[in-house]
Structures are given as C-alpha cells and as structure tokens.
C-alpha cells in the first residue's frame, strides 16, 4: 500500500470552544475537501495531503487581529508535519 504525500491525510484536533469556532470555520472554508468530525471536547479536521490555516481567513471570521502564534491556544494535536508556521499561514502536510 503506497500513498503519496499529496493525498495522504493530515489533520488537526482543536479544542471545542466558542473562541475556537472561528478558527474551525476558517479552516473549513480554506481547505476544500476537508472533513470535520466532532468528538467529546474536540473537533478533528482532516484533509488530503495538506491543511492550511491562514491568518486572513481567521481574522475575517473573528473580526479582530489574530497572530498565527495564537493557534497554539486552540490546537490539541495534529498528524502530519508542520511545514510552515509564519506570520500569515500555518501549513500541515507530509514531506514525502
């Protein structure tokens, strides 16, 4: 069974809370083809190959400035590799 980095699922678990709702919605809107699952206390979002969180889309929904560092208050776990985490976006994907 071989898979490619482009399609193999990556994902992130986010604590279910009012403040994180905008983050979850932003991820949903940014990542076409992602799947959102609700588990006790958390929301799990998976996507094939790549999952992106952009500052812009979170700020749009949150109605205030949001630093990507703030994602640390929301994230519970992830699988994949954090390929990028800069001022504008966070990218989770596989390397190979």
């Amino acid at each position: 069974m071989s898979t490619t980095a482009a399609t193999r699922p990556v994902g992130v678990d986010i604590q279910e809370s009012e403040t994180n709702r905008s983050v979850v919605e932003a991820i949903e809107a940014t990542n076409e083809g992602c799947t959102v699952q609700h588990m006790p206390g958390l929301v799990r979002i998976t996507a094939p190959g790549r999952l992106v969180v952009t500052r812009e889309s979170v700020e749009e929904r949150l109605g205030r400035e949001w630093e990507t560092h703030e994602f640390q208050l929301a994230i519970v776990s992830y699988f994949g590799h954090i390929k990028e985490w800069d001022d504008d976006e966070i990218v989770i994907a596989w390397d190979h």
């Binding site: 699922p9 699988f79 596989w94 390397d95 190979h96």
Partner: peptide, 11 residues
C-alpha cells in the same frame, strides 16, 4: 491510520 498509514509512509 495516522502513524502506520501516514507517518511511516513519510519516513
């Protein structure tokens, strides 16, 4: 799923 199916494919 996540480790054998994901990570180890990467490694």
């Amino acid at each position: 799923e996540q480790m054998l199916g994901g990570l180890f494919q990467d490694l």
